[in-house]
């Protein structure tokens, strides 16, 4: 019968207070759990005339940090940031941003002209443009 000992039941307001206190606690308040865009977030879209455009979020990376390869329709991005070494001795309160090396490979849609790749890094976004292969265009076949 020991489980019949009366105890204070959490009433609705106090439960609400508990939740509020929990989420307003500085430790949880602006926790960066959802602040992560993942390992090298990408957009792949179709531009004019079937051109494929890849956008990669690469904040803090410099041109010379990034290696880009396109082979058999697979685009590989590999980058290593030097920022990490610069701030190694600092005292950290919060560390959410991804540093160091990131890499990602993505299979691109369609038949692409791999010789037409153009890449540009601007404001921390890598933009890669690839034109479709001429052989991907529908060919008119003459009937003899």
């Amino acid at each position: 019968m020991s489980d019949l000992i009366p105890r204070e039941v959490l009433s609705f307001p106090s439960m609400r207070n508990l939740m509020r206190d929990f989420f307003s606690d500085p430790f949880f308040r602006d926790h960066g759990l959802a602040a992560d865009e993942g390992n090298l977030a990408l957009d792949v879209s179709e531009g004019k005339e079937g051109e494929v455009i890849v956008r990669a979020s690469m904040p803090g990376f410099k041109r010379e940090d990034i290696q880009l390869h396109l082979h058999n329709g697979v685009l590989s991005i590999k980058a290593e940031s030097k920022e990490e070494k610069e701030v190694k001795e600092e005292k950290f309160y919060r560390k959410e941003r991804r540093w160091g090396s990131v890499s990602r490979s993505v299979a691109l849609p369609g038949n692409l002209d791999e010789g037409s790749v153009k890449a540009e890094l601007k404001d921390g976004v890598l933009v890669v443009r690839i034109k479709p292969s001429p052989s991907a265009q529908p060919k008119r076949i003459e009937i003899k």
């Binding site: 602006d30 960066g32 959802a34 602040a35 992560d36 865009e37 701030v87 001795e89 600092e90 005292k91 950290f92 309160y93 919060r94 560390k95 959410e96 941003r97 991804r98």
Partner: peptide, 11 residues
């Protein structure tokens, strides 16, 4: 959307 941040103290 949240913004990922680093906070540190410099020299």
């Amino acid at each position: 959307h949240p913004v990922p941040v680093d906070v540190f103290e410099n020299k």
